[in-house]
Every structure is written in structure tokens, then in C-alpha cells.
């Protein structure tokens, strides 16, 4: 490689590396602002902004979905498999909303610790499979659990 070309190559590598470092530091500085949602553990620990609108993400606790009234109001527990926060929402839920499913809700924390959501979004996971496979996996899991409970 001719010296002038090597110089240009080094210049380009340095430029890309320099910009990369700068952006890395910038992203690290804004790390918290880039987080799309808070987890129930963070909310219980008081890290979420009180009185302010924020997003809360987690799994819907199995068997926790209740409809207290005759309207569209739903109440359910949201967990990150450690802490649970109760969420209340009035409105139409997305297609993927179900127990055990990851969701993200936007709203405010009420004084009694209930999260009043204005918006509920379903978070899809990265698994794609035909229904028969999902059924087979679920029944295999159930069989295994049954075996373990017998022992």
C-alpha cells in the first residue's frame, strides 16, 4: 500500500473510532433517558418519578386479571418476577394482552401504590411457532410438573 493511501486509511479508522467513542459516552450519559420503561422493582424501590407520567413494563401475573365493575376497567398485577405492582386501566386492550404476557403501560402512580394506566401496549417476545408446537410444549411442561409433584 502506498504511504498516502495508508495515511488515508489510518485517518478514516481514527475518524470512525473517534465518533464511535464520542457517541458511546453520549449514550452512556443519557442511558436512563433511553430506557423505555421502569420495572416493578424500580417502582417499589421509589426510583420512578412520583406524580409524573412514566412507563411501567413487566409480565401480567397469572390469574390476576380482574374486572371490578361493568365497564372497561381492568385491574391486574404486573411483575418482573420479583416485585408486583397493581395496574388499573380503562380502555381497550391490545390483541396480545393476556396473562403471562409482557406489557408496557403508561400512567401515574396513585398514592395507594396502584399504577393508573392511560395506555397499555403489549410487548411481543421473540418466539415464533405454530399453535400445535406451542400446545405440545405446554403439555410437555405440564407433564413434567405433574411428574415432579408426584415425586
Amino acid at each position: 500500500m502506498k504511504p498516502i493511501r495508508r495515511q488515508r486509511l489510518i485517518l478514516i479508522v481514527l475518524m470512525v473510532a473517534g465518533i464511535g467513542t464520542a457517541v458511546t459516552f453520549a449514550l452512556r450519559a443519557f442511558n436512563e433517558n433511553l430506557m423505555f420503561f421502569f420495572t416493578p422493582t424500580q417502582v417499589v424501590a421509589g426510583e420512578a418519578p412520583p406524580q409524573n407520567l412514566f412507563r411501567l413494563g413487566g409480565m401480567v401475573v397469572d390469574g390476576s386479571v380482574k374486572r371490578p365493575g361493568n365497564d372497561l376497567t381492568v385491574q391486574f398485577g404486573l411483575t418482573d418476577s420479583d416485585k408486583v405492582v397493581t395496574v388499573q386501566y380503562t380502555g381497550i386492550l391490545p390483541d396480545l394482552f393476556r396473562e403471562g404476557q409482557g406489557i408496557i403501560s403508561k400512567g401515574r402512580l396513585r398514592d395507594d401504590g396502584v399504577f393508573v394506566a392511560e395506555e397499555v401496549l403489549a410487548k411481543h417476545d421473540e418466539n415464533y411457532m405454530p399453535p400445535e408446537v406451542a400446545d405440545a410444549m405446554a403439555s410437555a411442561k405440564a407433564a413434567k410438573a405433574a411428574r415432579e409433584s408426584v415425586q
Binding site: G57, D125, N127
Partner: peptide
């Protein structure tokens, strides 16, 4: 992977086996 996002994680382009059924 770095941040909490609404978009799901990678299905095919990861080091584990892809979490998608072979027919898809």
C-alpha cells in the same frame, strides 16, 4: 439488548438457536 424497548429482541441473528419454528 442495551435498553428496555418495546421492540422484541433478536429471533434469528443471535448466538443461540433461532427461536422461530423451522417451517417459518
Amino acid at each position: 439488548e442495551w435498553w428496555n424497548t418495546l421492540h422484541q429482541g433478536p429471533t434469528v441473528t443471535k448466538f443461540d438457536a433461532p427461536s422461530i419454528h423451522v417451517s417459518m
